[in-house]
Computed example of a mutant assay.
Amino acid sequence: MPKHFNAAGIPNGYGNKSSIFILAGISFIMHIFLTILNKFPHVYNYLKPITEENAEYQYRCARQLIIMIKAEFMIIFTYIEWNNIKVALEKSSSLGTWFLPIVLIVIFGTLLIYIRKCLK
């Protein structure tokens, strides 16, 4: 089973069959952590000072950001896991050369959109 991919999406580290559960475990722990964190928006760091007038909007905006990031990471991890299985079964040879650029654009694009939205 591939357990590591280089920047081009080609596997360069392999492990045993049980290594497939590592990414699933990380995904599960991350999902639980972000779900719990989403319930406490008052502990986040904000770009603007929180006042009584903007608190509800800022908290809602931050919670939406966490929900979007969580969904994106679950999709990314599912895609990686799916491709790990395909590579192990020799039905594919890599994640694809566009995987890393697309992931970076999606994650940073989401962050930029929500930063801009929350600064209004």
Rank of each mutant, 00 (worst) to 15 (best):
K3D: 05
K3P: 01
K3G: 02
H4N: 14
H4C: 13
F5D: 02
G9F: 14
I10S: 01
N12A: 08
G13I: 06
G13Q: 13
N16K: 15
K17E: 11
K17L: 04
K17R: 15
S18F: 14
S18R: 08
S18Q: 08
F21M: 13
F21C: 04
F21K: 12
I22H: 03
L23S: 06
A24I: 15
G25Y: 07
I26N: 04
I26Y: 03
S27A: 15
F28T: 01
F28L: 14
M30C: 11
M30K: 00
T35S: 14
T35P: 00
T35Y: 05
N38E: 12
H42E: 10
Y44M: 10
L47E: 07
K48T: 04
K48D: 03
E52S: 12
N54M: 08
Y57K: 11
Q58L: 12
Q58M: 13
Q58W: 02
Y59N: 01
Y59M: 03
C61G: 00
A62G: 10
Q64V: 02
Q64C: 09
M68Q: 13
K70R: 13
E72F: 04
E72V: 00
M74E: 12
I75C: 08
I76P: 09
F77D: 02
T78S: 12
Y79W: 05
I80C: 07
E81W: 12
E81Q: 13
E81R: 09
W82E: 00
N83K: 14
N84E: 13
N84G: 14
N84P: 02
I85K: 14
K86V: 02
E90Y: 05
E90C: 00
K91C: 00
S92N: 15
S92T: 12
S94Y: 05
L95M: 10
W98G: 14
W98N: 15
P101M: 06
L104V: 07
L104G: 07
I105E: 01
F108L: 15
G109V: 00
T110K: 04
L111E: 08
L112N: 08
L112M: 10
I113V: 15
I113R: 07
I113N: 06
Y114C: 06
Y114S: 09
R116G: 13
R116H: 07
C118L: 04
L119H: 03
